[in-house]
């Protein structure tokens, strides 16, 4: 087909991908939020449950596939966004001496690139804080509530066991990999008010990104009619407010709790 080259290069196709990856990342946000809500349980059982959840999230093969899809979506969304922004800028080499865009459009809809950049910086810092710290950093190991015995990744307690290089030893015999205590890393991390403020700011950026992005994705994909579009718009606003707000409450809660 003679038009095929134009199809791949078309702005519209780039917007389809922007919408598709964006909506997938909305689903990811929901999943991530459900996991995070466990942090509200501040008892030892809550701590253990969260750390068991961290083991599940880093070992389950289905989760692994989803996580690679998520990384891919974030990077694709980012690169596609840069390409689209470059095309946006090229279309008006000379701007207006006096422009009043607030008269006809929302701030968030005009600043998705800036919001996206803030979100990207947030993701990098967030990954360093917890993902890198959990995988490669000096995350402590999970002990029983009285601190007397180490806990294995499957949640079993090894009485009289010692931890060496991430493995629990009992009388010189390897009993299994030790469970890491991500909960404490999170709790201690959020004792720093600057980090708490940074997380809240990151969530505000995501909220504004979603206010436009959620409903815009449906428009880009051509999914619009008189019945569903008003519902999608309301749902988008609710999503953009509720999801980042619940995320943002967690660091504030952990800061105030300790």
């Amino acid at each position: 087909m003679s038009e095929s080259k134009g199809l791949i290069k078309s702005h519209i196709v780039k917007k389809y991908w922007m919408a598709f990856t964006g909506l997938f990342l909305c689903l990811f946000l929901v999943g991530h939020l459900i996991g995070n809500l466990q942090l509200f349980a501040t008892t030892y059982e809550g701590q253990l449950q969260f750390n068991e959840y961290a083991v599940f999230m880093t070992t389950n093969p289905a989760v692994k596939i989803l996580s690679y899809l998520t990384y891919f979506s974030i990077l694709f969304h980012l690169v596609d966004g840069i390409v689209i922004t470059a095309a946006n800028r090229k279309a008006r080499p000379q701007g207006y001496a006096y422009n009043k865009p607030s008269a006809n459009s929302m701030w968030s809809s005009r600043n998705m690139g800036i919001l996206g950049t803030i979100i990207f910086v947030y993701i990098v810092v967030h990954m360093q804080n917890f993902w890198y710290e959990y995988k490669f950093g000096s995350t402590p190991y999970m002990m029983t509530e009285d601190g007397s015995a180490p806990v294995l990744k499957d949640g079993s307690v090894v009485k009289g066991g010692t931890i060496e290089n991430g493995e629990v030893l009992l009388n010189g015999e390897v009993m299994g990999a030790a469970m890491r205590d991500l909960y404490t890393v999170v709790l201690e991390g959020f004792q720093n008010p600057i980090l708490v403020a940074f997380y809240v700011l990151g969530m505000i950026a995501i909220a504004f990104h979603l206010v436009h992005g959620f409903q815009s994705a449906f428009q880009s994909l051509g999914l619009r009619n008189q019945t569903y579009t008003p519902i999608i718009k309301k749902l988008g606003y609710a999503f953009a407010i509720i999801v980042p707000a619940l995320f943002a409450i967690i660091p504030i809660y952990m800061y105030l709790m300790a």
Binding site: E3, G6, L7, K9, S10, H11, I12, K14, K15, I84, A87, N88, K90, A91, R92, P101, N104, S105, M106, S109, R110, M112, H212, Q215, S216, Q219, S220
Partner: peptide, 21 residues
């Protein structure tokens, strides 16, 4: 639709950001 969209892009009009302006 294919040809009109293609022509618009060749003319140098930008992508749609759905701002609604």
């Amino acid at each position: 639709v294919l040809n009109m969209v293609k022509q618009a892009e060749e003319e140098g009009f930008g992508p749609c950001s759905n701002t609604g302006a």
